[in-house]
Design a protein around this nucleic acid. Structure first.
Lengths: 157, 157
DNA sequence: CCTCCTGTTGCAAATGATATTCAGTTAGAC
DNA sequence: GTCTAACTGAATATCATTTGCAACAGGAGG
């Protein structure tokens, strides 16, 4: 299973950076993996807190998410208002997002040409890209026609 | 002058939405216009506060920026960590940004093809785009070779 | 010009996400 | 097993932003 492999690599990463291998960190990975591809930290904290035996405190979740970001297993993919939506990357190839501002649905997509064009632009400016984020906010097909119900996200981009 | 025109349109906008025409709001527009194309609100608040006669309180600046966003003269263009960088649009055509994570420089660019590709993707998913944001984080030409000095922005995207 | 109602302002306090401090607890090297 | 550095949880701090409220000011109608 891919998850096990990721955990092993993360273990290596921790060792290499003078961190310790603790049960909590790996339990948080499990939780994130079983939560779904996209999450917000507070949401995750609440979710974890509601489980039978709470596995980690809010601080530990925040700290672990940060570590996982440094490690590269997690990315901040959507910033909307004061909300930050993370994605459990876990070896998935790079992609961008369409975000429905009505229902909050997130659609992933990838277009080689867009990446290429970006690289060209960077070359033109002698700019070395490290990472990027493309967010497209709009209305998904399910929400068309039924505007103004269940507004869940703010439009402000 | 373009600024005057914008102010007139903003005046119309205010009237149409039951808001009042106050000196403060227009003074804030002047400040933003003379500040430069990109700004953060706290930065702007400090800058305004340091002027001879402070023109508006922090709350009023926040409230006015919000109004200007609704009006469409201002956009949130970069979200980095807990920072939000705004742009005074003022009729400028749409564009995207390269952000240097070393020195904070912001480069604007536009590629018709990227927009077209995005529209195509949206069509494929029957998704109606309302707005979008493309941020490319990296190292600008000036900062190449002199890494690790003057780190001003965090890499975390 | 006066009056009144409603929107606006400034300030202080509230919020919400995230970071940090500190004291007690463990991982894991020797 | 011992010891030290890293980790954890809880409470507290921080930072950007929002809100409640009392005082104030546009601007419509007289």
């Amino acid at each position: 299973m891919q998850l096990e492999e990721l955990k092993q690599k993360f273990e290596q990463f921790l060792r290499q950076n003078g961190h310790k291998i603790t049960r909590g960190r790996f339990e948080i990975i499990d939780k994130i993996a079983s939560y779904g591809p996209h999450f917000e930290i507070e949401e995750l904290v609440r979710w974890i807190a509601n489980q039978d035996r709470s596995i980690a405190s809010r601080s530990t979740v925040y700290r672990t998410v940060r570590l996982l970001q440094e490690f590269g297993a997690i990315r901040e993919v959507i910033k909307l208002g004061n909300r930050t939506i993370y994605e459990f990357v876990a070896g998935k190839p790079h992609h961008e997002h369409l975000i429905c501002v009505e229902c909050g649905k997130i659609i992933e997509f990838y277009r080689e040409e867009i990446e290429e064009l970006q690289d060209k632009v960077c070359e033109d400016y002698d700019f070395t890209p490290l990472n990027h984020r493309l967010e497209v906010f709009g209305i998904c097909s399910d929400c068309k026609g039924k505007r103004h119900e269940n507004r869940r996200m703010e439009l402000r981009a």
